[in-house]
């Protein structure tokens, strides 16, 4: 019996044969990421071998990981949310203004961030789920609103001077890994607080999607809405929850972003929604819904930023190269997905 149980140990061959769409795409993502990173180590040399290089990728992208997780959730139910970048900017600016201009407390500012995220998620979710409005339009409006509000809250960028905040910002968690620097001194590698938050979220969401009924309902709704309804799933509620969670994650991600950059600015997180969508897709989430995996999304973010690091360290650091590389990467993965799925379903 256990042989047929995907959660326990079937033989390796069995597993490859019976891969679901989700795990197939996930496998591709991880393999390509590992190859890419190995390639970077071989051709770009030392830098990528250092643990800190890898951790820096995490540090810089903790917020993106969280945003991408949210995107994956709504994409699995067959929706989309393009407001997350705007929400991030709004959260940063609101928290910055609260902390500096109003002399606020850093922990209260977390609540503000969360509240903004929940509000966006709940409102957008309600429109999408209960009024059946296309998520693209709703969240497009959400993005407009968040960006506009950011400017209204404060139109000029500024760095936060609040002490409690900066203390939190500078908190580093040292790990048992490390390397020796140029002077031969051993330096332990560190991660920022945001990375811990991101990892916890990744693990929680992975469990949610894999084992809970709510998680499986996400897949059901994304796979076939009508069928899900017939199976007795509350489709509207499921959709609402997905959007609510995405909004909430955007709030949390926004705060992590804020914690990383330490400033408020209307131009913060420009295009973050596109990066998050791209990461989810690279991670094997299909925009048609019903297929996707949080671990994949995690690797999607890493792949996207690793390739950027490779390009930068290859000396092509003009701004346009970043844009072009990202696009090529996305294009590649989209075509891989399209070809793989077409092959698989033809059989």
């Amino acid at each position: 019996m256990s042989k047929n149980n995907s959660t326990s140990n079937g033989s390796f061959l069995d597993k490859v044969k019976n891969l679901t769409d989700t795990s197939l795409l996930l496998t591709i993502t991880i393999v390509i990421f590992v190859l890419m990173y190995l390639g970077a180590i071989i051709f770009q040399g030392g830098g990528f071998l250092k643990v800190q290089t890898f951790f820096n990728i995490l540090n810089a992208n903790a917020a993106l990981i969280i945003l991408s997780c949210g995107l994956s959730l709504v994409m699995i139910i067959g929706g989309i949310d393009i407001s997350v970048g705007g929400v991030t900017a709004l959260v940063s600016m609101s928290c910055a203004v609260y902390l500096d201009n109003m002399g606020g407390n850093v922990y209260v500012s977390m609540l503000i961030a969360l509240a903004i995220g929940v509000a966006f998620g709940a409102f957008q979710g309600a429109l999408v789920a209960f009024l059946d409005i296309q998520p693209f339009i709703v969240t497009l409006a959400g993005m407009f609103f968040a960006r506009g509000m950011t400017t209204i809250v404060n139109s000029d960028p500024f760095n936060v001077a609040n002490e409690g905040f900066n203390e939190l910002k500078m908190t580093r968690i040292y790990t048992p890994f490390g390397s020796t620097n140029a002077k031969g001194v051993y330096v332990p590698a560190y991660v920022e607080l945001g990375v811990v938050v991101a990892l916890v979220i990744v693990i929680l969401l992975f469990c949610l999607l894999r084992w809970t009924k709510l998680g499986r309902s996400f897949y059901a709704v994304g796979g076939n809405k009508e069928s899900a309804l017939m199976l007795g799933i509350n489709v509207k509620k499921t959709k609402f929850i997905a959007h609510l969670m995405c909004g909430t994650l955007a709030g949390i991600g926004g705060f992590v972003y804020f914690l990383h950059v330490g400033s408020g600015s209307p131009s913060h997180a420009t295009g973050a929604e596109m990066d998050a969508i791209a990461s989810s897709i690279i991670g094997g989430t299909m925009l048609t819904g019903g297929v996707g995996n949080i671990i994949g999304t995690f690797f999607g973010v890493l792949s996207l930023s690793t390739i950027q690091n490779i390009v930068a360290s290859a000396g092509l650091d003009e701004a346009w190269w970043t844009g072009i590389t990202r696009a090529v990467m996305l294009c590649l993965f989209l075509i891989i997905q399209s070809v793989v799925m077409a092959r698989k379903h033809k059989k």
Binding site: N5, S6, T7, S8, T20, D21, T22, W211, T212, K213, L214, R216, S217, Y219, A220, G222, G223, N224, E226, S227, A228, L229, M230, L231, G232, I233, G290, V291
Partner: peptide
């Protein structure tokens, strides 16, 4: 028209949406 979800497993299709509560013992 078949009203099941093609992207879920057979077992999930058999049991999803039938019980209350958060957790399901998939085994």
């Amino acid at each position: 028209e078949i009203s099941l979800c093609p992207n879920l497993s057979v077992a999930e299709n058999m049991f999803i949406g039938r019980t209350d509560g958060m957790y399901q013992n998939w085994k």
